[in-house]
């Protein structure tokens, strides 16, 4: 009995000193970031090597679920950093008042658009695109209208439950404005189905349920680099491609403000940015010295980057959603 209590006291003391000496930085992010196959494990290792701290990731569904969780927790949140919001969510995130301004020198970024948001710092970005199998479609459509006029079948995601789904909704709206509803009506007979999330849609595409799937221009890089399969490609649209910029922000009530600033700086460093392309399969927000991994040069490069500013995205999505629903419910 005594032995056990001595042992327990020892452990307690050990735990106490450990927590006293090693500050903990808590980063809330989406689930696929922290998975064994995402960037999380490598990022944790690299940052802990230089920070003398314990970096703890907490996963929460996807970006929208992450924001919902922060709003539920409010000012009592244990998060020091929230990583994984995109520009469709940052307006609501800023409005929540939970985020602190970014620390002073801002890193230079390699984004196709200008970036000067005071609260959120990008760590990666990508273009939405329809991915197809080039052995089955020799000449893919080059615009939404061409796609709508073709017999090609597509799988898309529901904007109400999925981030890429919302991206497509805003893509059509940004590219076609008042004609968006007409575009959706044209696409209605091409859409095999609408799925809850990206995984279902992509899985259905790989199973041969559809000719094309809404994904990213970087998706073919996975097949090329990880599977040595060069049959997948993204179709380039003349309207331009809608962007997703993924960002992180510092929680205003953090008890580790310096450490949080260090993490944000680390996020723009080569060590972080080199991990991104082959784990998150997106473009790094700042090009590392080593450049992009081999295989990325084969990806399409859209001529026009489309993106709503956060406030406009927040305002327009309800209108865009009702157009989408009306056009596809007929």
């Amino acid at each position: 009995m005594k032995k056990i209590s001595i042992l327990a006291a020892g452990f307690l003391a050990l735990a106490a000193t450990a927590s006293a000496e090693t500050p903990v930085l808590t980063v809330y992010t989406y689930d696929s970031f922290v998975s064994e196959w995402g960037p999380g494990p490598a990022v944790e290792k690299a940052f802990e090597k230089e920070c003398g701290c314990d970096l703890q990731f907490v996963g929460a569904g996807d970006g929208a679920a992450l924001l919902a969780r922060l709003r539920l927790e409010g000012v009592h949140t244990k998060a020091d950093i929230a990583l994984g919001l995109d520009t469709n969510l940052t307006a609501a995130a800023a409005e929540s008042g939970l985020f602190a301004p970014l620390p002073a020198p801002r890193p230079t970024l390699d984004l196709p658009v200008a970036w000067n948001d005071p609260l959120f710092q990008p760590y990666d970005w990508g273009y939405f695109a329809f991915v197809y199998d080039r052995t089955k479609i020799p000449t893919p459509p080059t615009s939404f209208r061409e796609l709508a006029d073709s017999d090609l079948k597509i799988v898309i995601q529901d904007p109400r439950s999925s981030t890429p789904g919302l991206g497509l909704l805003l893509w059509v709206k940004k590219a076609h404005g008042e004609a968006a509803r007409e575009i959706w009506e044209g696409l209605a007979d091409n859409i095999v189905t609408v799925t809850k999330g990206w995984s279902e849609a992509y899985g259905m595409f790989l199973e041969g349920e559809a000719d094309m799937v809404l994904s990213y221009t970087t998706s073919p890089a996975y097949h090329l680099i990880a599977e040595n399969d060069d049959t997948k490609a993204a179709a380039q649209f003349t309207e331009g491609h809608y962007m997703q910029i993924e960002v992180a922000g510092k929680i205003a009530g953090t008890d580790q403000p310096e450490l949080a600033d260090r993490f944000l700086a680390f996020m723009a460093s080569d060590r972080f940015q080199e991990i991104i392309p082959t784990t998150n399969w997106m473009y790094p927000a700042r090009l590392p010295v080593s450049g992009l991994p081999r295989g990325f040069e084969s990806l399409i490069r859209p001529d026009t980057a489309l993106l709503y500013p956060p406030e406009e995205a927040a305002q327009i999505r309800h209108k865009a959603l009702s157009e989408w629903q009306a056009a596809l419910s007929r």
Binding site: A64, A65, A68, D158, P159, R160, S161, L166, A188, I191, V192, T193, V194, T195, K196, E200, M204, R317, L321, W324, Q325, L328, S329
Partner: peptide, 22 residues
């Protein structure tokens, strides 16, 4: 949703999802 072919096949649970995250 996956087999319903589009937003016609919207159930209450999906509406809950929408209210929560959208």
């Amino acid at each position: 949703l996956a087999l319903g072919g589009g937003p016609r096949a919207t159930t209450i649970e999906l509406a809950i999802y929408q209210a929560f995250r959208f």
